[in-house]
Simulated scan of single mutants.
Amino acid sequence: MPPLLELINVTKHFKVTSGLLGLQSGLVRAVDGVSLHVNKGETLGLVGESGCGKSTLAKCIMGLTPVTSGEVLFANKALATWEEKALRSKIQMIFQDPYSSLNPRQRIGSIIREGLDIHTIGTKEDRQEKVNGLLQLVGLMPEHGQRYPHEFSGGQRQRVAVARTLALDPQLIVCDEPVSALDVSVQAQVLGLLKDLQTQFGLTYVFISHDLSVVSHISDQVAVMYLGRIMEIGPSKALFDSPKHPYTQALLSAVLLPDPTKQSHRIPLSGDLPSPMDPPTGCPFHPRCPHAFDKCKNGRPELVAGESGTNVACWLHNA
């Protein structure tokens, strides 16, 4: 069975213009040759530093921004060949900030029902009945549909966002840091809700987050992204138990351990994230890598199978 979602060498470059004539002065390589796949019913966790291209990749998956090159396949069909409305009903997104992702001038019921109205699914009564059912499904009450977003807490608003996402019975949901703006206790509730919904409806998630503990908890696969490229990808347990890429090792070493009697060996990284307008030659991580050697500066490594079960793009494992 083919994967539900497959990315084949996807790139997204943005032109930088300057001057009165708007002449091109540079190119931002936000996504620079990403290939991955997600099977139906699985969760792919996508992690990396701010500015590495995670959200841009999410927009490419959603079709919100056209790719520069490469191909995004959904259910073994190129997204460019899909009729717009049909696509929108199959792929949905949960945004990071529940305060800005909901229209403050609309009632909650109207926000959830909007997709059903656009697609003219069922009668008006059928749509209202589905809205009531979705509110109950995410832990709210049908009468909450008459309230406005400002009358809810952050966790409740994100539950509303989840209900809106489910309205069109999607197969794939892109979660762009859906719990980062919430308190820790509320994060656990929303994550539990997402996992329960995945089990109940067979949903597939692409889950973007900076919190590696959250990613470890919810993901079947994890992809580590750096400067628009995938550095390491593989099963969650294998990647967290035995990371191979120096960047993955450095990220995991920064995770706080819940047991105060245990201490992790922090791997410091020198320098800042390079500009995607002027990426380094060779391996994009080599200016900050403690193990870099001459080959890292000249040749860009491709993803190859590592000993732990993950695929890693590193000359230390791809000699």
Score class of each variant (00 low, 15 high):
residue 84 E to K: 15
residue 78 A to T: 08
residue 81 T to I: 10
residue 73 L to Y: 02
residue 73 L to Q: 00
residue 98 P to T: 06
residue 90 K to P: 05
residue 104 P to Y: 07
residue 67 V to L: 01
residue 102 L to E: 07
residue 66 P to L: 03
residue 94 I to P: 05
residue 87 L to R: 15
residue 60 C to S: 10
residue 100 S to A: 14
residue 71 E to H: 03
residue 91 I to A: 10
residue 64 L to E: 09
residue 85 K to G: 12
residue 79 L to R: 04
residue 66 P to W: 03
residue 85 K to F: 07
residue 105 R to Q: 12
residue 101 S to N: 10
residue 68 T to H: 03
residue 62 M to T: 01
residue 100 S to V: 12
residue 99 Y to M: 07
residue 96 Q to M: 03
residue 73 L to H: 00
residue 84 E to G: 11
residue 99 Y to K: 06
residue 104 P to A: 07
residue 59 K to R: 15
residue 103 N to T: 07
residue 88 R to F: 07
residue 70 G to M: 02
residue 104 P to W: 10
residue 62 M to V: 02
residue 66 P to D: 15
residue 106 Q to F: 11
residue 77 K to I: 09
residue 91 I to L: 14
residue 83 E to C: 04
residue 59 K to C: 06
residue 86 A to R: 13
residue 69 S to D: 10
residue 97 D to K: 04
residue 92 Q to L: 11
residue 105 R to I: 06
residue 72 V to D: 00
residue 61 I to N: 10
residue 85 K to C: 05
residue 73 L to C: 00
residue 93 M to W: 09
residue 94 I to S: 04
residue 79 L to P: 00
residue 88 R to A: 04
residue 66 P to H: 10
residue 71 E to W: 02
residue 79 L to V: 12
residue 61 I to W: 08
residue 77 K to S: 08
residue 77 K to D: 08
residue 79 L to F: 05
residue 79 L to D: 00
residue 81 T to V: 12
residue 101 S to P: 06
residue 62 M to D: 01
residue 89 S to I: 06
residue 86 A to Q: 14
residue 66 P to R: 10
residue 74 F to Y: 08
residue 103 N to W: 07
residue 65 T to H: 09
residue 87 L to F: 14
residue 93 M to F: 07
residue 102 L to D: 07
residue 97 D to Q: 05
residue 70 G to H: 07
residue 85 K to N: 14
residue 65 T to Q: 12
residue 88 R to T: 08
residue 93 M to V: 14
residue 75 A to C: 02
residue 96 Q to F: 03
residue 81 T to A: 15
residue 97 D to V: 06
residue 83 E to D: 15
residue 81 T to R: 13
residue 73 L to M: 06
residue 92 Q to T: 12
residue 94 I to N: 09
residue 94 I to D: 02
residue 92 Q to F: 09
residue 69 S to A: 13
residue 66 P to K: 11
residue 79 L to T: 10
residue 59 K to D: 11
residue 86 A to I: 04
residue 102 L to T: 07
residue 92 Q to I: 07
residue 60 C to D: 03
residue 68 T to E: 01
residue 63 G to T: 01
residue 63 G to F: 01
residue 88 R to L: 12
residue 84 E to L: 13
residue 92 Q to C: 12
residue 96 Q to E: 02
